[in-house]
Design a protein around this nucleic acid. Structure first.
Length: 420
RNA sequence: GGAGAGAUGGCUGAGUGGUCGAAAGCAACGGUUUGCUAAAUCGUCGUACCGGAAACGGUACCGCGGGUUCGAAUCCCGCUCUCUCCGCCA
């Protein structure tokens, strides 16, 4: 949620941000309504103040006295006015609340201005993508992959895009998760286990609702949503709370499966591990002091990068342009791993600073020394997604005989050096 | 799933229709006192919104949402959550 004060004081700056993000929302209508709303608030409150002061006079009067009864008659009229004003205000607040939620977050000044993904800047690359296995093949064409995964049975049991993994591949997935979590711990993130479904308020606070509703699976009986990322339960951990300034920054990591409907996806993008409805991911989440959030974004990104370095996987970092920024983000880096068999970059992490946008929605604040509560800044990034990293490992590390060499850092987790 | 009890400020806990945003205690913060610690003592001590340059003023909030009433923490209805007991169960 945008800060209404920024909107009032600097509408042009917000207007520009909206244009750069390519979103459309009617700022003039919002500002106009803000004005009306405030007028209404003040007229209702004036009435109520009158009501209140007469009520205390009445408390001192004899109950059935003439004077008392006269006041009752008079106040009956005021009460009706208050009631009418209240209901008008309530409906206005409702509309207003919906409108203000349509205003996107403002991009940071360091974000390149461009309308579409072609404006994303390659910020950094690591590793030599031409030095991967000479036998590289798309993972879905590899014998080991097909041996240890079962898409047809997944489709039978649930549907397309809900695979089973078996034996060595299942173990490799588990190895990656453990590796990620252990690394996160090294970097100061406390591990969290979270609910896999959330209520509507949580989905709203992190911004999945209302604008990404179609992405989530719904449990209508309970009004719950299956999480599309652990960002949702984890960020909501502190919803409606005031933290101590001394607690900041708070770092948390969380492994969960993630569930995404991926409506409309099809073709090459969804083959094999590239895109499934359920996938494993470790998420890194930070709650930080507003002054430090951009430094914190850099270190968050580096924490994610270090995983690929240790796995010896070539990757690149994109600084996303305004047109490719999400609704809630101020600045975002995408991390893409090189999948040598498919010869393409696969997104494995997206590290974002939301500034106070989520914190405002989620009502997460901290109390500065002796001062009024202030919204924290929230950040998150994958550290990392499992399936696409797995795809890269398989594709880049295929040996001549079709077996796959396990990255050194995973050997101990995996219990062996080769997947065969 | 069945039966019952409960939800008040950071915490404990009074308050069953009127001057209650809410007693008291604890914790916290500031001052005094004190050789130090402790104790004592005085004061401050919720959040949001509206108005205001500010000082400050106003309004709302006693789990959440409705209702009754001139007036609701208090009465009525619905919901959520917590606890206890029974049943079921990884």
């Amino acid at each position: 949620m945008i800060d209404i004060k920024i909107l009032r004081e600097n509408p042009d700056c917000v207007r520009e941000a909206i244009a750069n993000k390519g979103s459309d929302c009617d700022l003039d209508a919002i500002l106009e309504m803000d004005k009306e709303r405030r007028q209404l608030i003040s007229s209702v409150e004036t009435l109520r103040a009158e009501q209140k002061s007469v009520n205390s006079e009445m408390a001192a009067l004899q109950k059935g006295s003439e004077e008392f009864l006269a006041k009752v008659a008079e106040m009956r009229r005021v009460a009706a006015e208050v009631k009418a004003g209240d209901s008008a205000l309530k409906s206005m607040e409702e509309t207003w609340g919906e409108l203000i939620l349509t205003v996107p977050n403002i991009p940071d000044s360091s974000v390149p201005v461009a309308p579409d993904p072609s404006g994303n800047a390659v910020h950094f690359t690591w590793g030599d993508k031409d030095a991967v296995s000479p036998h590289a093949k798309a993972h879905y064409d590899l014998e080991v992959f097909n041996q240890y995964s079962d898409f047809p049975r997944g489709a039978k049991v649930t549907g397309a895009g809900w695979p089973f993994f078996k034996g060595g591949l299942a173990r490799l997935i588990r190895s990656l998760i453990n590796f990620y979590l252990d690394q996160a711990k090294e970097n100061g993130y406390e591990e969290l286990m979270a609910p896999l479904v959330v209520n509507e308020a949580s989905a709203r606070a992190t911004g999945q609702l209302p604008d990404k509703e179609g992405q989530m699976y719904v449990i209508p009986q309970e009004g719950f949503y299956m999480i599309p990322t652990s960002e949702v339960p984890v960020t909501n951990f502190f919803r409606d709370e005031i933290l101590d300034e001394s607690e900041l920054p708070v770092y948390r990591s969380c492994y969960t499966p993630c569930f995404r409907r991926e409506a409309g996806s099809h073709g090459k993008d969804v083959r094999g591990l590239n895109r499934t409805h359920q996938f494993d991911k470790v998420e890194l989440v930070k709650w930080v002091h507003p002054e430090n959030s951009y430094n914190e974004l850099e270190s968050l990104k580096e924490n994610a990068e270090s995983l690929m370095q240790k796995l010896n996987l070539p990757y690149r970092v994109l600084l996303m342009c305004t047109g490719d920024l999400g609704f809630t983000q101020s600045k975002k880096y995408d991390l893409e791993v090189w999948a040598g068999g498919q010869e393409r970059w696969l997104e494995v992490s997206s590290c974002s600073n939301f500034e106070a946008f989520q914190a405002r929605r989620a009502n997460i604040r901290f109390r500065p020394q002796g001062g009024k509560p202030v919204h924290v800044h929230t950040l998150n990034g994958s550290g990392l997604a499992v399936p696409r990293v797995l795809a890269a490992i398989l594709e880049n590390n295929v040996l001549e005989n079709g077996n796959v060499k396990i990255p050194n850092v995973l050997v101990e987790y995996f219990g062996g050096g080769t997947l065969k």
